[in-house]
Amino acid sequence: MRAAQSARVQHLVFTGGTGTLGSLVVPLLRQAGHEVRILTRHGRGPGDGIEYHTCDLLQGGGLSSALDGVETVLHLAGGPRGPCARPSSTTWH
C-alpha cells in the first residue's frame, strides 16, 4: 500500500542533490509537487523547477542565504571526489 501523498508543498534543501542518491530522490520529490533547492559546489542555472544554490559546506559560505524559506534539510552529500578531494590542512577524525 502506498503512503498518501501530502497535499502540502514543502520547501526542501538538499546537500548531495546532484550525486548518485540525490539524482534518484530529487525527481521523485519534484513529481510530488515539492519545491527543491540543491546546494552545490559549482553554480548551475535553474532546471526542471529545481533551484541550484552555490554553497561551501566546509566553510559555510552561502549557507545562510541558501536556507532562507526552507522547512526541511536533507543531507545526502558524501565525500568529495576528483580535484576537490585533495587533502587540506583540516584533518577529520
Rank of each mutant, 00 (worst) to 15 (best):
C55A: 15
H11N: 15
A85M: 01
S89E: 11
R2N: 07
V73I: 15
A66F: 07
V13L: 03
M1P: 04
Q31S: 11
H93L: 08
L58N: 10
G43W: 00
L76K: 05
Y52E: 08
G16F: 09
H75K: 00
V70W: 01
L24Q: 14
T20W: 10
S65E: 15
I38W: 11
R37E: 00
D68V: 12
R30C: 09
L12P: 00
V9S: 07
L57C: 11
L21S: 01
L63N: 04
L76P: 03
P87W: 08
I50E: 01
V70T: 11
T18G: 01
L63H: 06
L74R: 03
G82Q: 03
A32W: 10
V9W: 01
D56E: 05
S6D: 12
V9D: 01
F14L: 00
R30K: 12
G16E: 01
D56Q: 12
A85Q: 05
H93P: 01
L28K: 14
H34C: 06
V13K: 13
G47W: 06
I38D: 06
T15H: 04
G69V: 02
W92A: 08
G33M: 03
A3D: 10
S65L: 02
H34L: 08
G79H: 03
G60N: 05
H53L: 14
G43V: 08
L76C: 11
S88D: 05
A32P: 07
G62D: 07
G22E: 04
G61W: 07
T54R: 14
L29C: 11
V73L: 15
A32D: 13
Q10G: 02
H93W: 02
F14K: 00
A85P: 02
L67P: 12
M1R: 02
T90L: 11
R37Q: 02
G69S: 09
P80N: 09
R2D: 08
P80C: 00
T72Q: 12
T91N: 06
G78N: 09
T54C: 04
P83Q: 14
H34P: 10
L74Q: 04
G62E: 08
Q10M: 12
T15E: 02
S89N: 02
R2V: 06
T91Q: 13
G17F: 04
L74T: 03
W92Y: 14
L76W: 10
R44M: 09
T18H: 10
R8N: 10
R81K: 13
S64P: 00
A7F: 00
A4F: 03
A7T: 14
G61L: 13
A3Q: 12
V70Q: 11
D56L: 14
T90A: 14
T18E: 02
L12K: 12
R30I: 05
G82S: 12
W92G: 01
T18A: 02
G69W: 04
P80Q: 01
V70I: 15
G33N: 03
S65G: 09
V36D: 02
L57I: 13
G62V: 05
T15I: 03
G19H: 12
A66S: 11
G33H: 05
T20D: 09
L74G: 00
T20Q: 11
M1A: 09
Q31T: 11
G82R: 07
S89C: 04
L21D: 00
R86Y: 01
L76R: 06
A66N: 11
P83R: 14
Q10N: 07
A3Y: 09
G60Y: 10
I50H: 10
S89R: 12
R44L: 05
T15A: 09
Q5H: 07
W92R: 14
L24R: 15
G82V: 11
